[in-house]
């Protein structure tokens, strides 16, 4: 499923646009620990986190993630935002908490996969 569709279905807001909203999202990864994301997240996943720290941008870029979804209505500061623009990392936002976003995304991405099989 494409990022644009996911954004619409989950009513996510766009914090930093990365001009590739037609990219295919292959899964999700939920973590607030950067080392864990570096070690375990797979390329093409949407990363769901509470972290707004500057370092989330290079991590997302390094792992070629489809984008970052920042939960709980948190907003990154200007430093993080400009880094995201610079590295072309998509940053989305939601008022929901990680559990619900993950729950819904799982149904969209994995649920559909199951039906294809």
């Amino acid at each position: 499923m494409k990022i644009q569709e996911i954004k619409d279905q989950l009513s996510l807001s766009v914090i930093v646009d990365a001009e590739h909203m037609d990219r295919e999202v292959t899964g999700g990864y939920v973590s607030d620990m950067l080392s864990d994301v570096i070690a375990n997240a797979e390329a093409g996943s949407l990363w769901i986190t509470l972290q707004t720290h500057l370092n989330i941008i290079p991590v997302a870029s390094l792992k070629d993630l489809a984008g970052i979804v920042i939960v709980n209505g948190r907003r990154p500061d200007e430093e993080t935002l400009s880094k995201a623009r610079q590295e072309k990392v998509l940053v989305l936002g939601t008022e929901l908490q990680a559990f619900e976003v993950a729950g819904r995304l799982y149904q969209l991405v994995i649920g559909n996969k199951d039906e294809d099989v």
Binding site: S35, T52, N55
Partner: peptide, 19 residues
């Protein structure tokens, strides 16, 4: 201000320092 933090990365990895 929520989200502001001066905590180093190792602290974040322990689940603290998210401002």
């Amino acid at each position: 201000h929520e989200g502001y933090s001066t905590a180093p990365d190792w602290v974040r990895e322990l689940g603290f320092g998210a401002g």
